[in-house]
Write a protein that binds this DNA or RNA. Structure first.
Lengths: 336, 336
DNA sequence: CTGTTAGCGCGTTCAC
DNA sequence: GTGAACGCGCTAACAG
């Protein structure tokens, strides 16, 4: 691997002249520059990243932390972030926290090694301890959820879609279509994600004076199979409802399958609306109505926020919230 | 950010003693070690990655290049690779080549900056130029396809599933189920990926003395919508077949949708078998028969191969091939 | 066992 | 305009 010294030796210039020529800063005659650039090209010179980093403390890398790499929810987000970051020469380091708080702390702790310039952090559950760990990295960070620090002050930015609203939209859609017995298929109720979505569901019902029936509130794990199991069990126990709000597409798909295995036709016997609006919605028969969480936009904006801090040196905190949008397909039937 | 010098100053030891204490190499009294480790802890010391890299030329990072982050084919592969790499303290840098040869070259060229220790490279189309670029990085690399270098010699490892065999299995399954007019729904015929799969299809037909009908060979782009359009067009032109081999699940889903939009029932009017066996197969009605390409295993083994080179200093070339496996579901009907 | 010293490759003063 | 020299933080060889 060629260094600036090799180029210096070959051209007869000094290493610092080579350095100046190469990155265009500082004085350097056009003639010298010409020669140096050419021989750098010839020698296949590529600057040693580690050396640059050590000097500049700039890595041109962003860590993107996500809980689950198999969850399609994040694909569009990664895609969006990667695309906009790439435009400014940044690349993405994948941090894969496997839905585990320990893992999250571990990843965040390692970040103190200064091997990335910023962080996009996604989690199902933001606890004060997690937020502390995020702040402790000292890195520009944007989190992809809304989180109000207990102290009220914080340095990280938030880019997110309004989660309660998403579930509210889904539930309200069911209500407007004439449903009143509407099940809620969520994840772990301890986690912020499910709590928020449940809150939106609850509020929608409340607004229409429909009491929440605890028997209709199911908790699975955001997987297709989990959704299937939970809903099949629900049906087997003789519970009934005319519609269900599934907290993600995967569970929606599982739920739909459970219905069909149970002899129920969607949407004639039961309506389903899911959240996330991924490709899965197109695969089912009927195609699944779902609430678009604008993951791609979240990824893009999150990356934009980071670049703004990094490149433009923005020093104040900013939030950005998106309103999810309902995408109607064929899995909801109008009653009455 | 605390450095070993800060710790040295605070404890009264020299920087090198601190370094030795910290990474357990070289002599250091237990007493000194004790003090040093404690104050390092107190000061929240984390070694500066760039400095270590510069010295050791070890980054503990692997670049994983994939053509398309939205293609579910790669999810399991990333997952598998991430999981096994993580066990040895490596993390994944995502290289996102967007299905474009230029982008591939660009990424590979940047790799000369020594900011990763190895590469897992996935592409739809390995050309000699691409292979040259891979070799030029000088990095341990495993590619996730089979590729026979023109010269016959190469330094990179291959971990892959037998692509022709996958299509062969799919087509043979159709034939064994009594089908003889079997369509092939592939991607760009110029790309290795489609060429290989077509070859398997062709061979299966040949083995059963079924002539290949060019009218039944369709080319789309590996997307759901592309598959839909191509197959709908096919049906609209009045072509007919009793079964189709779709080169990936996404196109299989699109194809199935095209059939149903055209009033054809799957599997009664037409059978479909796809390749990839992703979650999408569970979403369709009926669930889609597909050939499992063992992407997870490929990811794991590719990572293992790399670790083997990196950690165990393996210096000889190795290949590993998996045989895909048919997963029967409900989209194929037995004829006659 | 510990401290001194000399780089790793690059960017950046500062004299010339 | 150009080159010499220093330092980023850490590791490793050597001397003590």
């Amino acid at each position: 691997m060629a260094t600036i010294y090799d180029i210096a030796k070959k051209t007869g210039f000094s290493a610092s002249t080579v350095a100046r020529a190469l990155n265009g800063k500082g004085y350097c005659s056009a003639a010298a520059k010409e020669i140096i650039l050419r021989t750098a090209e010839e020698m296949g010179y590529v600057p040693h990243e580690a050396a640059k980093m050590l000097k500049s403390n700039i890595t041109k890398k962003i860590m993107m932390c996500i809980p689950d790499i198999m969850n399609p929810y994040y694909f569009a987000m990664i895609h969006g972030a990667a695309t906009t970051l790439e435009r400014s020469g940044y690349s993405i380091l994948l941090g894969y926290t496997m839905h585990s708080p320990e893992k999250e702390f571990e990843v965040l702790d390692s970040l103190k090694g200064h091997f990335v310039d910023g962080v996009i952090f996604g989690s199902f559950d933001y606890t004060p301890a997690l937020i502390d760990a995020i702040e402790a990295t000292g890195l520009p960070t944007v989190i992809t959820s809304y989180y109000q620090s207990p102290s009220g002050f914080h340095g990280y930015d938030c880019v997110y879609v309004d989660q309660p609203q998403a579930a509210w939209i889904a539930a309200t859609h069911c209500i407007e279509m004439g449903h009143r017995r509407i099940a809620f298929l969520g994840g772990n109720p301890k986690e912020q994600n499910t709590r928020e979505r449940y809150e939106g569901y609850r509020r929608a019902l409340e607004e229409h004076h429909i009491p929440v029936d605890k028997a209709l509130v199911l908790h699975a794990d955001f997987t297709r199979d989990g959704g299937y199991q939970a809903f099949y069990e629900f049906l087997r126990h003789g519970e009934d409802c005319t519609a269900v709000v599934a907290c993600n597409d995967l569970m929606g798909v599982g739920c739909m399958k459970a219905c069909s295995d149970f002899g129920l036709n969607v949407p004639n016997d039961i309506s389903i609306v899911a959240l996330d609006n991924t490709e899965y919605c197109f695969c089912t028969t009927p195609a699944m109505t779902s609430v678009d969480m604008l993951q791609g936009q979240v990824g893009e904006e999150a990356a934009g926020f980071l670049l703004d801090r990094l490149l433009e040196k923005r020093a104040y905190q900013k939030n950005m919230a998106f309103s999810p949008v309902l995408v109607e397909r064929g899995s909801v039937k109008k009653l009455g």
